[in-house]
Structures are given as C-alpha cells and as structure tokens.
Nucleic acid binder design. Structure first.
Lengths: 248, 248
DNA sequence: TAATCGTATTGACCTTCATCAAGCACCAAT
DNA sequence: ATTGGTGCTTGATGAAGGTCAATACGATTA
C-alpha cells in the first residue's frame, strides 16, 4: 500500500463511501445519495496499518472512529496485572471505537492481525453531521446498540457454554461473516492464533487445539494450521442449536 | 401501572428531572437548567412495576428507554432452549433499554426484583430532543459506550477469573453503587437470588453459596441469607487487585 | 400453628478443562 | 542447510467447579 500511496492526489482519496463496496455493511447503510456525499467529506481515507501495529490503545484520547476497509483486527482489554482479554475480531465494513464514542478515552486497544486499511471518521465531524442528518444519528445509535447486544451474546457464551459449543459458535459466526462479504463460507483462513481464539472464548490455547482436533476426527471440519474447511455445517449447527449466538 | 396511577393528575407527574435527586446518576447529567426542563416534557413519570413483572421483554417493539427511579431490576437474555443469562442488575438512576436504542426490538427482558418505579423516555421524543440539544445527544452516546465498556468488563470477568474473584468483583461493584446512592457500602440486602448471581457471574448457585460461606469463614463478610455485611473490604479488594472490574 | 413452596447450605462424587511438559511444523534470517 | 523463534499438537495429571442429593431455613398462606 504504502509506497504507491504518496503519489495518489488527495482528491482521489475522497468521495468513497458513496462508491464503496462495503456500504451495506458499514456506516452509510440506509443514507440517501446526497447524505452519503456529505459523509464522504467527513472521512479521512485509506489509512494503512501494518500487521502487529496498534490503531489505538486503551487510554488514548478518543478522536475518531475507524472503519475496517481491508484486513483483520482484534480488540483487547488489558488488566493491570497484564492479563489480556480479546473482546472482538473485526473485518471489512465493521467499525471500531464505538466503546469510546462520545467519551474522551478509548476503552480498548485495536491491533492489526494482518496489513490493513482503515477509514478514519473524526468524531467532531461525525457528531456535527449526525445532528444535521437524523438518519445518520439514528444509525449511530443502532450500531452502538448492536455492539451491546453482540457483547451480551458473548457474555452468554462465556457464562453458559462448554468449550465445544463456544468453538462451534465461533466458527459459525466467522463463516457467516465471510459469506456476507462474498467470500467462501466453507473455506477460510484464521487470522488469529489459537491463543487469541482462546482468550476471546474464555479457554486455553491447548483446549482450542484439542477441540479443533476433535471436530476434525468427527469429520466436521478439516484443519491445517490456520486453514479451515467446514465439512459438516449441519452437525456444527446442531451442536449450538438452542444457544444464542455471537451475532455481528 | 395499574390502580393508583389513573387517579394522579397528569400535571403532577411532570417536571421532575429538573428536581430529581438522581440527576447526577441519570440521563440529564450535565444539561443546562433550561435543557433539563425541555427533557422534563419528554418524559412520562412514575410508572410503577411490581415485583416479578417484566417491564419489557426480548422481542417487544422498542418504544422507550426506562430509568429506574426506585427499586431493582435484572435484565436477562434467554436462548431458544430456555437457558437464561442475567446480563445486568439495575438500580436507581440507571437506564435500561440502551441495547435496543435506535432499533425496533428490545434485545433483552427486564424484570423487577422488587416493587419499582421507573421513568419512561419515549424514543421519538428523546431522539428529536437530542437533535436539538447536542449535549444530550452526546450524553446518549456516552451512556451507550459506557454500557459497551461495562459489558466488556463482564466478558473479562467471565473469561478470565475464578469463582472467588468473580464474586469479589460483584460485591465490590454492588457496594460502590450503593455508596454512590447514599446508602451504606458496608451493609446491604441482595435483591437477587443465588441463582441469579450465579447466572450473571457464570457459575452455579451452589458455587455462589459455597464461595459466600468461604468468604465468611475467612472473616471477610457476614452473610445471613440476602443480608450482607462487609467486614474486611481491604481483603476483598486485594483478591481482585489486578482484575479489571465491573464498572457501572 | 402447621404446611408449603421457594431458596439456601452443605456434602459426596464426577466431569471438564487448566496446567505442565515434550515434541513437532513452519517461517525467517543468517 | 542451520539455527532460532513462534505457534501448534498431544499426552499425563490435578484442581476447580458442576451435578446430584439431602437437609435446613424463611416467608407466605392455610
């Protein structure tokens, strides 16, 4: 990304929400054409983030929301003694920073799990625009409440489900989100380590590994390191039937 | 709701945020006097809810936010097969329904754990008012992001902590919230059952009970059914030092 | 006062998962 | 090709907490 980027004239970086393929998954969902053009003006485009880098850190001053354009992020909360909990994984079209929206500090740390590109949405511009465009304001409410519901689903998962069920929910959720972006829902690459999956699901990396192996023995999936192939979707769904999932 | 409410003249139910003692904990926090009067107009006052009744249910059409005036609520999510997860406990000054704000359906069920009174904040009025009063709009953002952070704290708790730590965090959190409302932080009555505590903390009611007993043996608290007395706050804080808490 | 129902406590036992440990696979850098 | 690093797999063992069950308590109603 980087090298070529310097050459592109600034105006070419503008006006993108209105033509962006991620519209339907992202912030401008449901805006009228002219409103979307207004939104374009409020956005800083195509900020690259390299693998391993933090886009923002817990405690940083909150200035902007970020939308993932390409790549994959994790968000984490770190406790004083260093224990780390992954609070979510974020892919193209998803917003990060909502947990700080309207406050002055970020509430988590966002780290790129591969080379990424994000759109920056400066808070003050977004706020002003939202006051002018009721549909946008309402959409922001909606995105935040969706985030709350998603977290509550995760609480249910962490509080009530066994290791097998957790991992099944995780796989299904990932598979659905891949499908929503036009990728295969049967075959995909995990961008995160076993340890990160474990942290998110409240189990140890060894248990994640063992559970993957068991799913493979049962013929439900094929695992080769980070490469996952779903062989028996029905069986996995069966396992989690009756559980509330991790919607996104 | 019922009997007594019909008799009270409507004007007597109005104009309260501006004089309500819960201001500092509730929605109008930080509003100017005149803005608060505008808010008064948008609010329906003093809706009673009897113990055991649902204020709203998961799937109900979302029409209003509710602020607890007096009493104590739990919110729960129910999975298809009937498993129930308590997602939060709510006391005076706290808002319920934020997880549905801007959407059309409630995302959880709110049940009164004792006889309660709530203020109803109809969504359409609140939305219109927020578009007029930027400070109110921003405060709504802030309340929602605080809810997200609270849930993420709960995820950390459910994913990383042992039973003792969870219960300690729970007690400390409750104690602080009592103090913030002018009640004793050393002595209070649990409004919820052991099973509800367990559901919230991701453990079984027997484990809750055993852990309470152990705390009592250690001389940290005195338990008599629902009556709790905190004897050694420092010891409890020590136990959770290094854990991210359940802020509220 | 007794009877009943929901709630709480406590014990005995068992399952699940964490922990500790060893070895392997893969990639990057020299 | 060799070395080192990081991440993954798998096994053996133990601890934490779940499950089942018996009993007690406490509030409400008969």
């Amino acid at each position: 990304m980087s090298a070529a980027r310097e050459i592109i004239p600034v105006h070419a970086l503008k006006a993108v929400c209105s033509t962006c393929s991620l519209q339907e998954l992202c912030l401008p969902l449901g805006l009228a054409q002219e409103e979307m053009v207004q939104l374009d003006d409020a956005i800083n485009q195509r900020m690259p983030v390299r693998r391993g880098e933090a886009l923002f850190r817990l405690g940083d001053a909150f200035r902007s929301l970020y939308a993932v354009r390409t790549g994959f992020f994790k968000t984490v909360v770190v406790s004083e003694d260093g224990r780390e909990q992954v609070t979510g994984f974020h892919m193209a079209g998803e917003l990060m920073g909502l947990d700080a929206f309207g406050t002055d500090q970020h509430g988590c740390t966002a780290i790129a799990l591969e080379d990424c590109e994000v759109c920056e949405l400066p808070y003050h511009r977004l706020e002003n625009l939202a006051l002018e465009i009721p549909a946008l304001n309402r959409h922001l409410y909606k995105l935040m409440s969706r985030e709350i519901i998603r977290d509550q689903g995760a609480m249910l998962l962490l509080g009530n489900m066994r290791a097998e069920e957790r991992l099944a929910v995780f796989l299904l959720n990932l598979s659905q989100r891949m499908a929503a972006r036009g990728f295969s829902s049967r075959q995909f690459v995990l961008r995160m380590t076993r340890e990160e999956i474990g942290s998110y699901l409240g189990m140890k990396l060894e248990t994640v590994s063992r559970t993957f192996s068991r799913f493979q023995q049962d013929g439900w999936i094929k695992v080769q390191g980070k490469q996952i192939e779903v062989l028996d979707l029905a069986a996995i769904k069966q396992l989690v039937s009756g559980c509330i999932g991790l919607q996104h």
